[in-house]
Design a binder for these strands. Structure first.
Length: 588
RNA sequence: GCGCCCGUAGCUCAGCUGGAUAGAGCAUCCGCCUUCUAAGCGGACGGUCGCGCGUUCGAAUCGCGCCGGGCGCGCCA
């Protein structure tokens, strides 16, 4: 990548001027304003400031040592000390031609890491709903970007298949189960059971006690309760398989909470022995170690002006375990099994305090292991309805994922039918499926993950603007050229170079060269929306090129050059969309 | 009460490890289909980046203080 060459050269030139500079501080980035150049470096100004030097003079000294003539016009020093790099047309053409000729669009990372990505995590015996969309879409996109960059990825779906809710569910199963309803719609029936018993528990302490007893029996290995639990898990797995199939999401592992059940007593015992946890009101708890100032300490909470302990409980007073313990055992298992450099948790931002506690607790429990792994909570915001309130159905229930996907496809089908009635019904249904699912995913991935966003069918499936449909349409327009070419017997000269002559061609080519760089930025902070923004811009640049530069009607060698540029744009667009987990179509 | 997040164009949102004249889409208005899919393209209009102070050559971005909204705060996950 040209960008890396420039960065390397800049670091080399700077080292000749200031030998003790940290190269990591030097970055060459795409120029936000094309009229200043194609790439820029602003790091010298900060450096000059830190050393009380004249920034422009430092820039001049570095530029004097800088040898990038192979790629760039003479480097300009602008404003207070920016370096502006403008690509030579010749270098641009060589680079884009080379990219078009290579099989892989992205250079693999020079430092591949092993990353465990923990995402989706639906609950057994409950329907998947809108609340699972974000974790599933964002997590899947993250793992795809990592793989594309050549990292080793382990995806693990940490199913909510164990825990307090099963006490209530077992009570319901034993006393209130409607077999026919279970056959018709197992998840709905399980949900009904849970709701009924949960309601009863709120009003009746005896019922709550009964549920607790069933839970304790289950956790103690009771055969009957174990069989019921297993059946509920099986029914749920069928639901997950269906929905993940529709969404095109796969996992390497689905080690749910139950997988760690047997490991939990030893975890608590070990932590008690090591003095990290202690008894408190009958429970086993981890308290603050006082290493952080109170306001940054997740083991403390302020109540009426007093900082009081808020320990992490790893065993409840009734002897049961909770998710903190499970999560500790999970980290332990993942480190032993996969030796990851990093574990990322794609989970709602509201759980941030839990993860802070979890990571700190683990570091106290296994300091050496914790030093070798980076634990990161990748949080995200809520999905709101069009009224700005949390997204619910009209009757106030959570929106089920299956219903949401159905509606997306239905709405997309209407649009396709209106826009392209020439397609057969089967074709239109396929287009509707790809467009509908893609629209939901794109709507979820294009905002900054930490923002809450407003869910709007209208906007999501809008044919204009920054939507999945727009990108998919841009792709079909590219493919359409090649269909037309085949019809007319036009062949691409395989040896042709891409000569980007027109401004719209050059802008497109330059943007294509930045694909890999965009992916690298994404992985730093796990922000898939950067890829959405990149692809939206790509589609726009392609459309402009498409309007202003005839492809099939131009004469050789321009025709082959443009066909190759189209092909590359198509490959990048498709690869980028697929990396977001979004499918493309040849026609729509 | 304490903590976290948010406040950018009429609406929905980008941009935030400081960088050049703050960007999109929608909406409104004006243009472009005898030429590769008009599900498209071009243009116009629209902003005290919640308010104030500070740090800096430079602040939407960093710090402090307000105002407004959301979320979270022992045996759920």
């Amino acid at each position: 990548m040209i960008h890396h060459e420039l960065e390397t050269q800049l670091i080399r030139a700077l080292a000749a001027v200031l030998p003790d500079v940290d190269p990591a501080a030097i970055q060459v980035r795409p120029c936000p304003e094309p009229r200043f150049g194609d790439y820029q470096a602003s790091a010298l100004m900060g450096l000059a400031k830190a050393r009380r030097m004249n920034p422009r003079q430092l820039a001049a000294e570095v530029v004097a040592k800088l040898d990038v003539g192979q790629w760039c016009e003479p480097v300009e020093i602008a404003g207070p000390g920016f370096l502006n790099f403008k690509l030579k047309t010749e270098a641009l053409n060589a680079a884009i031609t080379q990219m078009a000729g290579e099989e892989r669009l992205v250079e693999p990372s020079s430092h591949p890491r092993t990353v465990v990505v923990d995402f989706s995590s639906p609950n057994v015996a409950k329907p998947m709903h809108v609340g699972h969309i974000r974790s599933t879409c964002i997590g899947d996109a993250i793992q795809r970007v990592l793989r594309l960059l050549g990292h080793r990825v382990v995806t693990d779906n940490h199913l909510g298949d164990w825990g307090t809710q099963f006490g209530k569910l077992i009570v319901g199963w034993k006393e209130l189960l409607d077999r026919q309803a279970l056959d018709r719609d197992p998840i709905a029936e399980l949900e009904r059971l849970y709701r009924m018993v949960n309601q009863e528990c709120e009003e009746n302490p005896d019922r709550l006690e009964q549920a607790r007893e069933e839970l304790v029996k289950l956790q103690a290995g009771d055969e009957e309760n174990g069989a019921i639990w297993k059946e509920m898990a099986r029914l749920s797995q069928a639901q997950f398989d269906t929905l993940y199939g529709r969404m095109g999401v796969q996992f390497d592992h689905a080690l749910g909470e139950s997988f760690y059940n047997e490991a939990l007593p030893a975890v608590v015992e070990d932590m008690m022995n090591k003095g990290i946890a202690r008894e408190s009101e009958g429970a086993a708890a981890v308290f603050s170690d006082g290493s952080l100032p109170p306001r940054e300490d997740p083991f403390l909470v302020n109540r009426d002006g007093e900082w009081v302990a808020e320990p992490a409980l790893i065993r409840k007073s009734d002897g049961g375990f909770n998710y903190m313990t499970t999560d500790l055992a999970t980290i332990d298992h993942r480190l032993r099994t996969w030796q990851p450099d990093e574990i990322v948790y794609v989970v709602d931002d509201r759980q941030a305090p839990h993860f802070r506690k979890l990571f700190l607790t683990f570091a106290r429990w296994q300091p050496a292991a914790a030093d070798r792994v980076r634990l990161r909570h990748i949080g995200f915001g809520k999905i709101l309805g069009e009224d700005g309130r949390p997204f619910k159905t009209r009757s106030g229930d959570t929106v089920k994922l299956s219903v949401l996907l159905d509606e997306a496809e239905e709405r997309a089908l209407k649009v396709v039918t209106e826009k392209n009635p020439a397609l057969t019904e089967a074709e239109r249904r396929e287009v509707a499926r790809v467009v509908g699912i893609g629209a939901i995913k794109y709507a979820d991935l294009s905002p900054n993950r930490q923002s809450d966003y407003q869910f709007s069918w209208e906007k999501m499936l809008s044919l204009q603007g920054n939507t999945g449909v727009y990108l998919q349409y841009a792709y079909t327009r590219i493919r359409s050229i090649f269909r037309k070419a085949a019809e007319e017997g036009v062949a691409v000269d395989a040896g042709a170079r891409i000569e980007a002559g027109e401004p719209d061609e050059q802008a497109l080519a330059k943007h294509l060269l930045r694909f890999g760089l965009t992916l690298e930025y994404i992985v730093e902070e796990y922000r898939p929306n950067y890829l959405c923004a990149y692809l939206y811009e790509l589609a726009g640049l392609y459309s402009r090129f498409y309007e202003s530069c005839p492809v099939l009607k131009s004469a050789e060698p321009q025709r082959s050059s443009r066909l190759k540029l189209c092909e590359l744009a198509g490959r990048v667009l498709k690869c980028g969309l697929n990396t977001l987990g979004i499918e493309t179509l040849e026609q729509m």
